[in-house]
């Protein structure tokens, strides 16, 4: 697969201003903008980075440029959410979609390991799509807990937080210049451990209808807090209530930015 992607990227670089992908050198691996003439044998596919964020930054800086990106399923979902929020221009983006392996999908508890390329004007898929992996077992375990046990669970988890803001900084769909998590009105400055549960619930609420389950926040968390258990539960509720799945399709607008007058709210669940 890797050779196929490198060949495709070399070919496309003749027409594009650059392709965002991971580059491995003796310094380590990180996203880079490959340009024509660059050594594509340095292009690798792991470890994961929030490339949607990189694409957004570069598109905003180079307003006429047309870039490509090597993207997994979670990356294309993040790209879709960023398009809906006007952080990415789909017409200036070409996508090399890569299908993740079964093993990778299991590690990520990923329900959609293959990138959905339908929304994109220009895209190619490399690799054979594998089916979705089973969900994180912690979610079902959590659902069996009583209200008090749930409160204790999160209290214990969030007490570990060192307020690094890493879960926000790494998130491919977090982009605001002014962040509520830095607003003294909501989060008291200088307080460590951050206020329970405000800090984490603000983050969770802002991820509602946005979180594409890439799980990079959990990888970045130095305290090992299972953040995506909370986000998975919220995604599930939002899916059941109004049928919205973040990143799934480009046409349905972000529900929190729309009127819900005609939304098919399930009144039983809403109680």
């Amino acid at each position: 697969m890797i050779q196929e992607i490198r060949d495709l990227v070399s070919e496309k670089l003749k027409k594009l201003d650059g392709v965002v992908a991971l580059r491995k050198t003796d310094q380590g691996t990180a996203p880079t903008l490959f340009q024509e003439g660059d050594d594509v044998s340095q292009l690798v596919l792991e470890p994961r980075y929030p490339v949607a964020k990189t694409v957004s930054k570069l598109q905003k800086r180079f307003k006429d440029a047309k870039f490509g990106v090597v993207a997994r399923g979670c990356d294309t979902r993040a790209l879709v959410e960023m398009v809906k929020r006007h952080q990415i221009d789909p017409d200036r983006l070409y996508i090399v979609g890569m299908a993740c392996s079964e093993e990778q999908a299991e590690t990520c508890y990923c329900a959609e390991p293959a990138p959905d390329l339908d929304p994109w004007p220009e895209a190619d898929l490399v690799g054979d799509p594998v089916p979705g992996a089973p969900p994180n077992p912690m979610v079902a375990e959590y659902e069996n807990l009583s209200r008090e046990e749930r409160w204790d669970f999160w209290n214990q988890q969030f007490t570990k937080c060192i307020k690094c803001y890493g879960c926000r900084d790494i998130c491919p769909v977090c982009f605001c210049d002014a962040c509520s998590l830095e607003d003294p009105l909501w989060v008291e400055p200088g307080l460590l451990v951050p206020d329970f549960p405000m800090y984490h619930l603000i983050k969770a609420m802002h991820m509602t209808t946005r979180c594409v389950a890439c799980r990079q926040c959990e990888t970045a968390c130095p305290a090992g807090i299972p953040l995506t258990v909370l986000y998975d539960l919220i995604r599930k509720d939002v899916g059941n209530l109004i049928g919205y799945i973040p990143g799934a399709d480009a046409d349905s607008g972000p529900p929190l930015s729309l009127t819900l007058a005609d939304a098919p709210i399930d009144s039983e669940l809403a109680k």
Binding site: G28, T29, A30, P31, E46, P47, R48, Y49, K57, L58, R61, I162, K163, C164, Y165, G166, D169, I170, T219, A220, C221, P222
Partner: peptide, 27 residues
């Protein structure tokens, strides 16, 4: 780095010390 300007930090996901994590100072 964009055009010679340092614009941000990403963790080093394949480095054995931080293994993809940073504290607020590193970020």
């Amino acid at each position: 780095v964009v055009d010679g300007e340092i614009v941000g930090v990403l963790p080093a996901n394949d480095h054995p010390v931080g293994r993809g994590s940073l504290c607020i100072k590193g970020w």
